[in-house]
């Protein structure tokens, strides 16, 4: 088994928490897992990514370019920034949400017209309105668990396995809403 996932988005969207759940699940299953991300200055509303690698034995916490099998993108522009990590057979799941970076707000740069279309020319892409589903689950911040639910449908583990991992990561008071968001994502496609 070899599962390499790139998770990306914007600071505050819960990228790091999503990768934490995936990591907890892999450990439960007795697999080796590494994840890599950048904290600090990069998180002040900047671009955020996390690599999660699951296998019998993982060396580099950073995924080599052109090899990742999955991408979870919480924001449309960010898919383009990290596309070079993906293999040609990668499955890409994109949240239909656009957050303008400061460079676009200040008129220095232009937001690409159709990032999803650009990706679709190269990869198998599914676009999901995760913000709507997160609202439906009861919390706009649960976009990350909706997206993780979407990914979970292509991975071998049961919903109960995922719930157990979520229990290890989330405080009890946030569990219900996040499980609900996860289930909505898992069944949306």
């Amino acid at each position: 088994m070899k599962i390499d996932v790139v998770i990306c988005g914007v600071g505050g969207q819960g990228v790091l928490l999503a990768s934490e759940v995936l990591g907890a699940l892999a450990i439960e299953k007795g697999l080796d897992v590494k994840k890599s991300e950048i904290h600090g200055m990069a998180q002040r509303g900047g671009s955020v990514f996390s690599h999660v690698r699951i296998a019998e034995k993982v060396f580099s916490p950073v995924i080599p370019q052109g090899t990742a099998g999955y991408m979870l993108a919480f924001e449309e522009l960010e898919v383009l920034r990290y596309a070079h990590f993906l293999s040609q057979k990668a499955k890409v799941f994109i949240n239909k949400q656009r957050i303008n970076p400061m460079t676009v707000l200040s008129g220095e740069a232009v937001y690409p017209e159709d990032p999803v279309g650009m990706m679709s020319r190269h990869f198998e892409v599914k676009s999901v309105d995760a913000l709507r589903l997160a609202k439906e689950a009861g919390n706009v911040r649960a976009v990350n668990m909706v997206m993780l639910g979407v990914l979970s449908a292509c991975l071998p583990w049961s919903e109960d396995d995922w719930f157990k991992a979520m229990e290890m990561v989330f405080p009890a008071r946030l569990l219900d809403v996040n499980k609900k968001a996860f289930t909505l994502g898992r069944t949306v496609l």
Partner: peptide
């Protein structure tokens, strides 16, 4: 050379004051 897709001219997303 990795077999990868590169998109260029992507607007940067620098960190900003909250």
């Amino acid at each position: 050379k990795p077999k990868a897709v590169y998109f260029t001219d992507i607007p940067t997303r620098p960190p900003t004051l909250c």
